[in-house]
Simulated assay, not measured.
Amino acid sequence: MPDLRTRLRVGFHWRGGPDVVFADITEWWRDPVVLRDLPAALSALIPGEPTVVLGPASRGTLLGALVAAHLGVGLVEVRKNDRVAEHGPRLYASRRLPAGYHEGGARLSFRRALVRPHDRVLCVDDWVESGGQALAIREMVTEIGAAWLGLACVVEDLGERDEIRGRLGVRALMTADELLDD
């Protein structure tokens, strides 16, 4: 039986053409063994005992829900461009991503009341490339006064961004370089 990392490699493909190449991970969600094993594997990456998991929409929310259920804690969805959040700054923690981020300056937000000052926060996502989303989420978490435990992700693609890796406490199951099609 192939291990989780092998299954992740088999279910991964670089797609696109000469101008645009993107990571296709959709086969991961079709593999019941990946769905079963990912929560425990991601949970084990970060030391400490989280009281809540944050997951950025959309795949971070999917993975975050699996990890939160595995840990027996709640999930807070970090939304993108939530119009309600734009009109309720006292109710929502919010940050705009840099214009150079691949989503062109999207706004991330979550309801402030869902992350409490005594919380120990684990952020979960599928892929970290620039760290832009996770840095914004970490700022919102620390603004509330909660403790940031780190970012657990399936794939780390930060390259030479050691300072960002350290600030976020990034731990990953594999690097992008390990996802080469055979």
Rank of each mutant, 00 (worst) to 15 (best):
W29G: 02
V124M: 03
D3W: 07
L8M: 09
D24N: 08
A41D: 10
G100T: 13
R30G: 07
L54S: 12
P18E: 15
D119A: 00
A176V: 12
H87M: 14
A65D: 11
R116F: 04
V67F: 04
T61H: 12
P47T: 12
L173Q: 02
T61I: 15
H102Y: 11
R120D: 06
P32D: 02
L54K: 03
G60N: 13
L114A: 06
W28A: 00
L54F: 08
D182P: 14
A23G: 11
D157H: 09
T61V: 15
V141A: 00
P32M: 06
H87S: 15
R112M: 07
Q133W: 07
G64I: 05
P47Y: 09
A40C: 11
T175R: 14
R107Y: 04
N81W: 01
L179R: 07
G150R: 01
R120M: 02
L38V: 12
P98E: 12
W14C: 11
P50N: 08
V141G: 01
G48N: 14
L45V: 10
E77H: 06
A68P: 02
V78E: 06
E178T: 07
D37L: 03
R120C: 08
A93R: 13
A41W: 05
A136Q: 01
P32Y: 04
I25Q: 10
C153W: 05
L42Q: 15
P39E: 02
A99F: 09
G105Y: 02
G131T: 01
L35Y: 06
W148C: 05
V67I: 09
L45N: 07
M140F: 03
V115P: 01
L38A: 12
R138P: 08
Y101A: 11
P50W: 00
R165I: 01
R116Y: 09
G64L: 04
V155K: 02
A134M: 03
L151D: 04
Y92W: 09
I25G: 08
E143A: 06
A134P: 01
L149H: 05
E143G: 08
A93F: 08
R171E: 14
T61F: 14
G159C: 01
P98A: 12
S130P: 01
R171F: 11
R161W: 10
V52A: 06
D177K: 08
R36K: 13
T142G: 00
A136G: 10
R30S: 12
T175A: 09
V121C: 03
V20Q: 12
L4W: 06
L66W: 10
Y101D: 14
V73M: 05
